[in-house]
């Protein structure tokens, strides 16, 4: 079993990258690999509660999909705390319980995984 880290770096819409990255993470996990997620930069916005996309938005809304992570045994989620602070987000009010990591500790987290996918 390899340890995969998926780094979520983009805001939840309008791009397709977060949804594709999440699908990839769930697929890899369904192949019995250990999968963790790290939310960094604008990726922390994916964890914001009360997201309402504009009416004209026709893409995927990811909020309900987070509940599916446990089906695929993806239980280790990290969020980088400076990214949260820069965007005025409160770590206690995110969509899911999540472990905080300081920016200087991110390289060690990355180094502790066998495969890293950034999306």
């Amino acid at each position: 079993m390899r340890k995969f880290l998926f780094i979520m770096r983009y805001s939840p819409w309008p791009g397709v990258i977060p949804g594709e990255c999440l699908d990839m993470a769930m697929t890899v996990a369904a192949f019995d690999q250990a999968v963790s997620l790290l939310f960094l930069d604008d990726g922390v916005l994916q964890l914001q509660t009360g997201q309402i996309p504009p009416a004209r938005y026709r893409g995927r809304v990811l909020n309900p999909v987070w509940d599916a992570l446990e089906l695929y045994d993806i239980t280790t989620l990290w969020v980088e705390q400076e990214s949260l602070r820069q965007r005025g987000l409160d770590a206690t009010r995110l969509l899911r319980p999540i472990q905080l990591i300081r920016r200087p500790d991110v390289p060690d987290l990355i180094a502790a995984h066998d495969r890293v996918v950034s999306g």
């Binding site: 699908d23 309900p64 509940d67 599916a68």
Partner: peptide, 17 residues
């Protein structure tokens, strides 16, 4: 699954779920 998660799995995910 579809109504709850608003997501469609691929075959591998489907089997695992």
């Amino acid at each position: 699954y579809y109504l709850r998660y608003q997501h469609l799995p691929n075959m591998r995910m489907f089997v695992r779920a």
